[in-house]
């Protein structure tokens, strides 16, 4: 499971740093390294870009797992450089940005947009498999999630836009319901697809979503 990120447009990054001349850069050694958006190379690239804008980069690091609570300890070593900065720019997914913002007493700003949580299905290729909807339907969809993989998250079969097994919005994307149909057919379980599925609950855990595990 990986947090899939994309670098923000440079002009948006630059705008976020308006009035902040000294920047400390943090990358992430896990997902953002894998997606080549916040690994060592990208952090150094960003450092160059910021210096080109006339900003001072007070220091940089790539923490092993930005969202992990250990990030706090890791960053303590860089306390001086962080103190000297007017802000911390984070090149990780939003989970990492949150983790840092929770204990750094400086403005923390994201360099990346977090797109989705995905599985790697081949080198450099990721796809979203779970939208964390709170009412898992995989039991009647042969393990293929229509909430996530169907553009209209339909629960009762394909729309009229099914296009030779591809989605009407993009010929490079599979039609989830063609995949579900095929797999259920192979399993001899098409009766499952014929069963009516009622709408899901949009508020299984109302936002803000919090879970407290009892001891």
């Amino acid at each position: 499971m990986k947090s899939i990120t994309k670098q923000k447009p440079l002009e948006e990054i630059d705008r976020q740093l308006d009035g902040m001349d000294r920047v400390y850069l943090v990358g992430c050694g896990t997902c953002a390294t894998m997606t080549r958006t916040g690994g060592r190379e990208e952090v150094l690239h960003m450092k160059e870009h910021l210096q080109g804008l006339g900003k001072m980069v007070t220091g940089w690091t790539v923490v092993p797992i930005a969202c992990d609570e250990m990030t706090d300890t890791t960053l303590r070593e860089s306390n001086g450089a962080i103190k000297n900065a007017s802000c911390v720019m984070v090149m990780s997914c939003a989970l990492g940005v949150h983790r840092l913002a929770s204990y750094i007493d400086k403005p923390v700003t994201p360099a990346l947009d977090t797109l989705f949580i995905g599985l790697e299905d081949g080198p450099g290729s990721f796809h979203e498999v779970c939208a964390q909807c709170g009412h898992c339907v995989l039991g009647f969809t042969a393990g293929i999630c229509p909430v996530t993989m169907c553009h209209k998250h339909l629960l009762n079969g394909p729309c009229g836009g099914t296009n030779d097994g591809k989605c009407e919005i993009d010929k490079t994307k599979d039609c989830a319901w063609t995949l579900i149909y095929q797999r259920l057919k192979d399993q001899g379980r098409l009766d499952v697809m014929r069963r009516y599925q009622p709408p899901g609950n949009s508020h299984v855990v109302p936002r803000p979503r919090i879970a407290r595990i009892s001891p």
């Binding site: 079969g157 099914t162 098409l190 697809m193 014929r194």
Partner: peptide, 13 residues
């Protein structure tokens, strides 16, 4: 629709 069978299941539903 191609494929047609899933479309027909939707029709039945």
């Amino acid at each position: 629709a191609k494929p047609f069978e899933p479309q027909f299941i939707k029709f039945e539903k």
